[in-house]
């Protein structure tokens, strides 16, 4: 062992008076990005944990769930009455409860997305300009109506009863579609969901590619987070946006190299295990009787809901 450099044996600089009253660091965009990265990992973990709970939907064969997803999405899209939509919403609530989902979080997401992509986006169509009918609430009042070619702007512009009914129906469809999708995703491990796509004859090579991509997202995010921690351990103060951008671009190059390396290694690992031009994945075992019964019951209930 070479001699220890003299600076390493020097005493540490004197301790400053640091009691928390000095200038504070601001959160950089890198730190904010890392918080999102951590959230991705957390979300993935929560999804996996929820799908591993004991509940009605968790216990079903993933193929039944995939068929339920497709069947009910089609059903919800062709429902024409509010009663049918409301009954479907209630049925989906019962399924969420029986699957032991955290209702507050589950419906929190659903209602927020419904508000944005259902209600707010369809609300303008409730105006009498697009949907004629009994005016319930006047928004604008002009002195007279205007006509330009085929377009007529009436004297009063407002929301009609017919338009609001359509908006409500569309919002209900959006809400039910989201409920179905989130119910299936929350109760099915992603890998099982991908495997279940075999029922639609999706080629195995495609399923394998999705599986690898999904897995790599988590490896990638974890690596990014580790890079951030390593830098944090050597950062003795704030850093400018310029420095942060420089670090990010440097790390992007590193991640690109690492991804390429990983890709080559995964390919080699697949090759030594017999990969040829045709990918063969394990077939799922035949569904159990209880899955058949549950599938038939869901089909029947769906049909009855459509009749309402």
């Amino acid at each position: 062992m070479e001699k220890i450099p003299s600076f390493l044996t020097a005493a540490a600089p004197p301790e400053p008076e640091v009691r928390g009253a000095g200038p504070r660091l601001r959160t950089s965009f890198v730190n904010k990005g890392m918080e999102y990265a951590a959230a991705v990992l957390r979300t993935g973990f929560i999804q996996w944990e929820t799908s591993a709970q004991k509940g009605f939907f968790q216990g079903l064969d993933p193929r039944v769930k995939v068929l339920f997803l497709v069947f009910f999405i089609v059903l919800v899209s062709i429902q024409k009455t509010m009663l049918s939509g409301a009954a479907t919403a209630f049925f989906l609530l019962v399924l969420a409860v029986s699957s032991r989902l955290d209702l507050f979080k589950h419906y929190g997401k659903i209602l927020l997305l419904t508000l944005v992509f259902g209600f707010l986006m369809t609300l303008p169509s409730a105006c009498n300009v697009f949907t004629p009918g009994d005016l319930l609430w006047t928004v604008f009042h002009f002195e007279k109506s205007y006509t330009w070619g085929p377009i007529t702007v009436p004297q009063e512009i407002g929301l009609t009863a017919e338009g609001l009914r359509r908006t409500a129906l569309l919002s209900l469809r959006v809400m039910n579609s989201l409920s179905i999708s989130l119910l299936v995703f929350a109760t099915t491990p992603f890998m099982e969901f991908i495997k279940a796509l075999q029922v639609f004859r999706v080629p195995d090579v495609f399923l394998l590619t999705i599986t690898l991509a999904y897995k790599y997202i988590f490896i990638f995010v974890q690596t990014v987070y580790d890079l951030h921690l390593a830098k944090k351990s050597r950062l003795t103060g704030g850093e400018s946006h310029r420095e942060a951008r420089k670090w990010v671009s440097g790390r992007l190059a590193f991640l690109f190299r690492k991804s390429q390396q990983q890709c080559e290694e995964v390919f080699k690992a697949m090759t030594v295990r017999g990969l040829t031009t045709t990918v063969k994945l394990r077939r799922l075992p035949p569904p159990a009787v209880k899955d058949g019964v549950a599938g038939a019951a869901l089909l029947l209930i769906g049909f009855l809901l459509w009749l309402l």
Binding site: E15, P16, P23
Partner: peptide, 17 residues
Amino acid sequence: RDKAFLKFFRERVGFVF
């Protein structure tokens, strides 16, 4: 988040990953 403490701490504690 205190700049003085961060400098004080980081120059005294090193981490080898």
